[in-house]
Amino acid sequence: MSTEAVVQSTPARKVVIAGVMGALAIFLGWTHLGFIPWVAGAALTIMHVPVIIGAVLEGPIVGTAIGLIFGLFSLLQATLAPTGPVDVWFQNPVISVLPRLFIGVVAWLGYKALRKVNEPLALAVAGILGTLTNTVLVLGTIGLFGHLPWAALPPIAIANGLPEAVLAAILTVAVVVAWKRIETGARKSRM
């Protein structure tokens, strides 16, 4: 059930949503607010969630644009303010930029396929698919460049990618449901 509005998309809307969601990705990365420490010194990231939200709200082109900002930012950050050895790999735009261009498109496709069935479900799927796109493509390009042996990749994909997908799904659903004032029918206030 949804009382969702049909907001007409205009050039201004597309540019602004892309800009502010790009800003959010930059902000999350810059302040490290978007990193959640995980096992063994690794960190989970939710920096790509703005890309997914933007794609769901404004479509694949906006999603790709936010992905581009996200990618360029990680390229710059890896180059100008590196914090770990892995950053050296991300100085290669094929690893840091290219994979990010596909997050939005895949998330949007997932959302579009399922939104008629159940909107919150579609949002969760968008969050998961978007995240997995990021994980698989980034690790894939890292493998291609031979930075890591192929055998090392699947465990990383599972250890990082899956929990990140869950976090992204939770955030995407929470934000978009609140923004579009979608009635989830579940509980109301706890009070």
């Binding site: 540019v15 602004v16 892309a18 800009g19 502010v20 800003a23 959010l24 902000f27 581009l68 900002i69």
Partner: peptide, 12 residues
């Protein structure tokens, strides 16, 4: 659009 988007992002 790309330039404007980057501009807005930096401002935000």
């Amino acid at each position: 659009e790309f330039a404007l988007m980057v501009n807005i992002a930096l401002r935000f």
